[in-house]
């Protein structure tokens, strides 16, 4: 059976390699992918959305519906890990595998963390807010924010960090982020446009429709960042403590 699988894999692999011939050259400017939709985006994106960062504009506006569900994927992944790992009253009877216990505290580590965490969080906010103009955005900024909490948990301990960022608030924030994203879309719907058509906000905020696109994108990026931050830390807390949320690495 194993040999048969190997043979099949080899044949299919050879076929795949042979068919590369049919694909456009690497980086070919005349390939369909770079001649069909891309010129429209490159030429019109600033007039249509007033956002110079093409990636952000496509991600958060043209295909904002996909990104909303990507945020839901992150949210769902966090919930899945929590559902599977987190200890419950019923699971409590089972013996857990012993984990290394932390002994004492490290003053160098803790003070470095104290120095590092505030700039990290500020930088994260910058990355989130500046996603329209430079590389960045909600996912990246959210990961940096989440990492700052993980650093706190690594250098002090999980319990202390969880006192500041409780499990219930992790869940609250992970839901809140998705709610902000979808809520911005629904307000567009209530203001008489289609779902996620940010232009609908223009009258409400007293700005032009172009600015409304830009502001709408900022809003959804903030939503994405909140969810990603909460889920990042929740994943760490669950995985590091095996679902107990007591002690961890």
């Amino acid at each position: 059976m194993k040999r048969l699988t190997l043979l099949l894999t080899l044949i299919l692999g050879a076929y795949l390699i042979w068919s590369v011939e049919d694909l456009p050259e690497w980086g070919d400017p005349t390939s369909p992918a770079s001649t069909y939709l891309s010129p429209h985006y490159i030429e019109n994106i600033v007039e249509e959305t007033s956002v110079p960062n093409l990636v952000t504009a496509i991600l958060a506006d043209y295909r904002g519906y996909d990104t909303m569900f990507e945020t839901v994927v992150v949210f769902c992944a966090g919930l899945t890990v929590l559902t599977i790992l987190r200890r419950t009253e019923r699971k409590n009877k089972k013996v857990s595998t012993p984990r290394p216990q932390r002994e004492g505290s490290d003053i160098i580590l803790q003070n470095t963390a104290r120095l590092l965490i505030p700039p990290m969080q500020l930088f994260a906010l910058y990355v989130i807010a500046h996603g329209h103009h430079s590389p960045g955005g909600g996912f990246q900024g959210g990961v940096i924010l989440g990492a700052s909490f993980i650093l706190l948990a690594l250098s002090y301990d999980l319990k202390k960090t969880l006192k500041r960022f409780k499990e219930s608030s992790m869940l609250f924030y992970s839901g809140l982020g998705v709610l902000i994203y979808a809520g911005i879309g629904v307000v567009c719907l209530l203001l008489g446009k289609n779902f996620l058509a940010y232009a609908a906000w223009s009258n409400f905020l007293g700005i032009t429709e172009l600015e409304a696109h830009s502001h709408g994108m900022l809003g959804v990026e903030i939503g994405v960042a909140i969810t990603v931050m909460a889920i990042m830390f929740s994943l760490y807390a669950d995985l590091a403590s095996g679902g107990d949320l007591d002690e961890g690495l």
């Binding site: 939709l37 043209y62 519906y65 996620l196 058509a197 940010y198």
Partner: peptide, 11 residues
């Protein structure tokens, strides 16, 4: 049309 974008550009 999601976000009021015409089909090949939006979803």
């Amino acid at each position: 049309r999601l976000g009021d974008w015409p089909p090949p550009f939006g979803i």
